[in-house]
Design a protein around this nucleic acid. Structure first.
Lengths: 270, 270
DNA sequence: ACAGATGTTCACGAGAGGTGAACTTAAGAG
DNA sequence: CTCTTAAGTTCACCTCTCGTGAACATCTGT
């Protein structure tokens, strides 16, 4: 027989990895559940339980808590959906972007002038996150909504940002996120990527030549803040069919460079 | 000596309130912490601990979890801030609004035509939540951002929505949220509010006569969906000084009614 | 270099929270 | 209208999570 003390020491044998972060399981579960609601566009207890692997009771308790705290709503037909409280959190998250209004005006202008889609993207946790987007008259249909996250290595904005981050940061990001294949033109070799980043730094802006989606191209340029650090990048995106040499390598980069200058100059006075 | 069963029953004496919901404390703590980041616009462990009353270690563990899950960011100066992942959740929450694009177009039109602020609001958890907002040329400065929540009884949109909810729902909302005083003109008496809602139903739209902020007035009208239920309400808001009788009771209501009709007609074809 | 504050780690134990099963309610089929 | 099936909710149990204070580490500014 064991005494209580002996039993206890057996229960906690040895931490598998002594350096792994200590995270709170219940919080992770709630986040997984919210993400499930996001992906399903609303679901019931059973669906969420199946999707996450948690028991029905667990899902029920989490959803009840989230509903009580008004982060989730029960609709008429009994499904749970993301609450509008996230609009509020999103608004306050966006307030971090000091140059938001400035950027917005320029992105609107770019979309109107070019007739294509224009956007502003920022780096976070090694992803590119779309902060603002405006559609021009002939803009392509892509699922690129505000809040959309994508890898940095295969977009114009992403490469523009990477080009102006310290090499160590870029290496860390590559290690963390990998260089996933999107199309046959996606850069998947680190050395090739670093060469590309050198070229971008030389000319001041980046091209996306069907590296994300076949047939889709883009031009992007970084916004450099007072401290000399990249704040983000703006870009114009359109179908390859509409982008002849003159436009893709001339007019569009000019428009973008002009907007970048306006933003950077006005940002210093904030 | 006690048997196991007897001991157990002693340990759980009597639930203080048998009907109180079972919520998960850790989740509530995380939400409180996120709300603190929201309110402070970014803060360190100590500040959040002071603000919430939780221990530093607790706050540290929660923030570490939220950062690991990429819902929060550590900035250069060591403070934690809301992550842009909330933009994504917000986007998916907003997808619940089927008529969003339709409403957006009309609100833009109203803002341009009137020169004032125009907006679309929806009810959730007994609050009015601003879903979309556009500023006209002369729009007033108010903190009415997308995601902003306010009580329903003292705004034009709020009263327009209440007027078309079942009386039982209205009573439940009043009970839950109360009729808070905003200005000397705020309706704080339930009977008076129900009379006002009758009047709104008669004429089809609602007025806010400085009931929220002194000097600020508005006109709002509900959007009624196919099932005959209120989807939300649109509104134009401006300074009382710019709203003479003719404009406030004539032109503005006409513009809004026209937009409501366009939205409702087009909504049936979705 | 030092003082004051902030962030991080640790051991411990109360009790939170996850679980399966039982129960209730709602929806559909025949 | 009843039976069947599935979904949501409640419950008692038990483990291990998570909150805590205090000690330790790290940083900032003068």
């Amino acid at each position: 027989m064991f005494t209580r003390g002996e039993l206890k020491s057996l229960r906690h044998p040895v931490p598998v990895c002594p350096h792994q972060k200590k995270t709170i399981d219940a919080v992770q579960r709630t986040l997984r559940i919210l993400e499930t609601l996001r992906e399903t566009g609303g679901a019931g207890v059973t669906t969420v339980a199946k999707e996450t692997g948690y028991s029905k009771a667990t899902v029920h308790n989490h959803l009840a808590t989230l509903e009580h705290e008004e982060y989730v709503v029960r609709t008429g037909d009994g499904t749970y959906e993301l609450g509008f409280r996230f609009l509020d959190l999103a608004h306050h998250a966006r307030r971090r972007i000091g140059i938001y209004d400035l950027v917005r005006r320029e992105v609107d202008k770019l979309a109107a002038e070019s007739g294509e889609m224009a956007l502003y993207t920022v780096e976070e946790h090694g992803w590119g996150v779309c902060i603002y987007r405006e559609l021009g008259e002939n803009a392509v249909q892509t699922p690129l909504y505000v809040g959309y996250r994508s890898a940095l290595h295969h977009t114009a904005v992403g490469k523009a940002i990477l080009a102006y981050l310290p090499r160590s940061r870029v290496e860390a990001i590559i290690k963390r996120r990998g260089l996933t294949v999107q199309t046959e033109d996606t850069i998947t070799d680190p050395d090739q990527l670093f060469d590309e980043l050198d070229a971008i730094r030389d000319r001041g802006f980046a091209f996306n030549r069907e590296e994300t989606i076949p047939g889709l191209v883009g031009v992007g340029a970084p916004i450099i803040g007072q401290g000399g650090t990249v704040e983000g990048a703006i870009s114009i995106i359109g179908p390859a069919s509409r982008m002849d040499e003159e436009r893709f390598y001339g007019e569009i980069p000019d428009m973008i460079t002009r907007s970048v200058n306006i933003i950077e100059i006005n940002a210093t006075s904030i």
